[in-house]
Simulated assay, not measured.
Amino acid sequence: MQVTFASEPAPGAAENEDFVAATADAVVVLDGVTVPCGLSTGCDHGTPWFVRRLGGSLVALLATEPEALLIDLLAAAIRKTAGQHAATCDLEHPGTPSATVAMLRERDGVTDYLVLCDCTVLLDGPAALRVITDDRVSRIRWGTYAAVYQHVVGPDGVQREVPVPEHWHHRNHADGFWIAGSDPAAAYHAVTGSVPCAGLRRAAILSDGAARLADRFDLVSWPTLLHILDRDGPAGLIRQVRDAENLDAERRRWRRAKQYDDATAVLCRFPEALAP
Rank of each mutant, 00 (worst) to 15 (best):
V3G: 05
T4H: 07
T4G: 01
T4K: 06
T4Y: 00
F5K: 01
A6H: 14
A6I: 04
A6N: 08
S7N: 02
P9Y: 08
P9S: 14
A10N: 04
A10E: 05
G12E: 06
A14S: 10
A14M: 01
E15V: 14
E15M: 07
N16C: 15
D18C: 10
F19K: 01
F19I: 01
F19R: 00
V20A: 10
V20R: 02
V20P: 02
A21I: 05
T23I: 02
T23D: 03
T23G: 15
A24Q: 14
A24E: 15
A26K: 02
V27K: 06
V27P: 06
V27M: 07
V28I: 11
L30M: 03
G32F: 13
G32M: 12
G32S: 12
T34V: 13
T34M: 09
T34N: 14
V35P: 00
V35Y: 00
V35W: 00
V35E: 04
V35S: 02
P36K: 08
P36H: 08
C37W: 07
C37G: 09
G38M: 03
L39K: 05
S40T: 14
S40Y: 04
S40Q: 15
T41L: 10
T41K: 10
T41P: 10
C43P: 01
C43K: 00
D44I: 02
H45E: 13
G46P: 10
G46N: 13
G46C: 12
T47H: 00
P48I: 08
P48E: 08
W49V: 08
F50V: 00
F50E: 01
V51W: 05
V51T: 12
V51Y: 07
R52N: 14
R53L: 11
L54I: 10
G55I: 10
G55V: 09
G56R: 06
S57D: 10
S57R: 12
S57H: 14
S57N: 14
L58Q: 07
L58P: 07
V59N: 05
V59A: 12
A60L: 09
L62G: 04
L62W: 04
L62Y: 05
E65Y: 04
P66E: 05
P66K: 04
